[in-house]
């Protein structure tokens, strides 16, 4: 596979499987989003030519994202290529492609576009969303990114819990030596390494790749206890996501 095609495959997977699911938490951090979502019943399919898709459901004030296409969705957004989706997500605004279904529902389209634009703004400001995007990227990176695969090949198995205890924000990832899973919230069973951020600004800086992590650890702003090699490796894998999703990462 050419480097460009490989890049497109990984980035598409990251946007569909890691970024889009973070919509589920948007209402928790944005009152404006909550007001847009409350009482709205809608489903929005993201379909990417030859690259699968995902569907966002709005119902009873909740948002859920499923990793499959639901062609009967109220709105269906068809991306002619992975590149179109990547440009969509990595762009500065959130302008939707022409819908395959729902063109006669301009109000719904408009509302979803507003939610999307809000998301683009909030995801850079809220560690809850960024943590979700970060851990959500692990399965895609494991599936498609060679460097991530090489890192994980030598990674000890275990459960890593990441959290901001002062804000009650947690998520965890489990690597069993061959597969990686993640979820939001506290890890349900035994944890092998805990990565704790002292506060939201520290978490935000870390998740945006803007923290001197070793200095923060030394200062007690970032605590890593337990199986350090697991946390360290997952951190290196997560840095790969930034490589694909950083604005300007798109190959010419």
């Amino acid at each position: 596979m050419s480097p460009e095609r490989s890049y497109q495959q990984i980035a598409t997977s990251l946007y569909l499987r890691a970024v889009l699911p973070a919509f589920e938490e948007l209402a928790l951090v944005s009152p404006r989003a909550r007001s847009l979502i409350d009482g709205w019943r809608c489903s929005v399919e993201f379909a990417v030519s030859r690259a699968g898709g995902a569907t966002v459901f709005f119902q009873d004030g909740n948002v859920s994202v499923r990793p499959e296409r639901f062609p009967t969705s109220a709105l269906s957004l068809f991306f002619l290529s992975p590149l179109q989706l990547i440009k969509q997500f990595s762009g500065k605004g959130f302008s939707l492609p022409l819908p395959r279904r729902g063109i006669f529902r301009p109000a719904s389209l408009y509302r979803f576009q507003k939610i999307g634009t809000l998301f683009q703004r909030e995801v850079q400001r809220h560690p809850r969303l960024l943590l979700s995007v970060a851990l959500g990227s692990l399965p895609s990176l494991h599936a498609y990114d060679f460097d991530a695969q090489e890192l994980l090949r030598r990674c000890p198995a275990g459960v890593a819990e990441f959290g901001i205890p002062t804000s009650d924000i947690f998520a965890w990832a489990k690597w069993n030596g061959s597969a990686i899973a993640w979820a939001r919230g506290r890890a349900p069973g035994a944890v092998d390494v805990r990565v704790s951020f002292a506060d939201e600004p520290t978490a935000l800086a870390a998740l945006r790749g803007e923290l001197d992590e070793m200095a923060a650890i030394g200062a007690g702003e970032l605590t890593v206890r337990g199986l350090i090699p697991l946390a360290e490796t997952l951190g290196l894998v997560l840095a790969r996501a930034a490589f694909y999703m950083k604005p300007g990462a798109l190959p010419a």
Binding site: M214, I217, G218, V224, I228
Partner: peptide, 8 residues
């Protein structure tokens, strides 16, 4: 680096 010990 303190990160390699038990920091703090």
């Amino acid at each position: 680096s303190p990160a390699l010990t038990v920091p703090t």
